[in-house]
Amino acid sequence: MNKPVYTRWWFWTLIAIIALGIVNWFDTGRQTTRTSQPSATPAAASTQEPSPEAAANPSASPAPGVSAGNSAPPSPSSAAPATSTPWATVPPSPESGQAAPADQVPLPKQEVLAYTRQMNGSPFVREVSVGTDNIEIRFFGSFAEYKQANPGTKLTAADYSDKLGSVNAVHAILMEESTRLFREFPGMASIDITLPYKGKTYSVSLTKGSVEKFYNTDLDSIKSDQQWREQISGPFFTRDYQDQFAKRFVKVT
């Protein structure tokens, strides 16, 4: 009588081989499935190359310590300068508290008129005209002409002669008073003085530059009365220099 197959040794050996083959097949399939999925490890992520957009715009990534949703604004030193129209040069306003240079403002008319009322021979001045940078002074032609224009005056012909009684007195007024006015009002560029005497008209038409050249000085640099006496009135207001001044500047018609 033949024995059953399952009692044979080779039967169980075959079964064991088949079982091992089935187990190996399942293990192999599981490993294949795992290797087919993308790796999410930090090492794999670090090897990924940056995208072209990220490379072209480095500032797109937030600075350390700043989150992407709350990035800090650029500092003034790193921000691009704004393009603006250049400022135009504006002269100082009278309300700014900064005084404009004396040679850039109109002459103060009332101050000029007040000053000429104190000059030598002023009672016999007929008219004073004040321009932007020019002063024009005209004297009466005679005491009679002055008396006619001022019938209530207490001045006499003797007073007139005391101030305007000689050619030298006329020269002194034309020279000294014009120079004083240039010093007193730095914005004055020129002066015209007309003074009739004994049927003749003595006149000067002076610029500040011509007067400064005559004295060889800068009138604007004279700040005190002592400087004035030392540099101008003391050495120059003499008969000799009055004659030189008259020869150079005084016209007689």
Rank of each mutant, 00 (worst) to 15 (best):
R126I: 03
T7K: 06
F214I: 01
V204P: 07
K200Y: 08
D103A: 14
P81K: 03
Y115D: 08
A54S: 10
P76A: 14
E53D: 07
S84W: 00
D159I: 01
A80I: 03
Y241F: 12
S61N: 10
A189S: 11
E230F: 03
K247T: 04
L174H: 03
M188D: 03
L20Q: 02
G21L: 14
A169Y: 11
K208V: 06
I191G: 05
T132K: 00
P91T: 03
A79I: 02
Q244L: 11
N150G: 09
S67Q: 12
T179S: 13
F214D: 01
P101E: 12
E49R: 09
A55L: 14
F124G: 02
W87P: 04
P235K: 12
L20Y: 03
P73V: 10
L164R: 05
G165P: 09
A56V: 02
S233G: 01
P76R: 11
E176W: 06
T32R: 09
V250C: 07
Q148R: 14
K200Q: 07
L181I: 14
L181K: 08
P101G: 12
Y115A: 15
T35L: 13
L20A: 12
I135D: 06
F140A: 08
D159H: 14
S203T: 14
V125K: 07
V66N: 15
I173Q: 10
T7Y: 07
A60W: 06
E111H: 10
D240G: 06
D218E: 14
K198L: 04
V128S: 08
R248G: 00
T201R: 13
H171K: 13
Q148W: 04
T41D: 08
Q104P: 00
I137M: 11
V66M: 15
N70Q: 15
M1F: 06
A43N: 15
V130D: 01
Q48A: 10
V170T: 11
K198Y: 05
K147P: 11
A189V: 02
D225C: 04
H171R: 10
P58T: 05
G152C: 06
F245M: 08
R126G: 09
F249E: 00
D103F: 10
S221Q: 15
F140C: 09
G121H: 12
T28E: 12
K213Y: 07
M1H: 10
S59Y: 02
T33Q: 08
G209F: 14
F185C: 13
F236N: 08
A99R: 02
Y215R: 04
D218L: 05
T35N: 08
D240L: 12
T217D: 11
Y197E: 04
P123I: 04
T153N: 05
F26A: 06
T179G: 04
A80V: 10
F245V: 05
K247G: 00
Y146G: 11
E230N: 12
T83I: 06
P73C: 13
K163R: 12
Q98G: 07
R229G: 03
R34F: 01
E95Y: 13
E184Q: 15
F11D: 06
S161L: 05
T116R: 01
N57R: 11
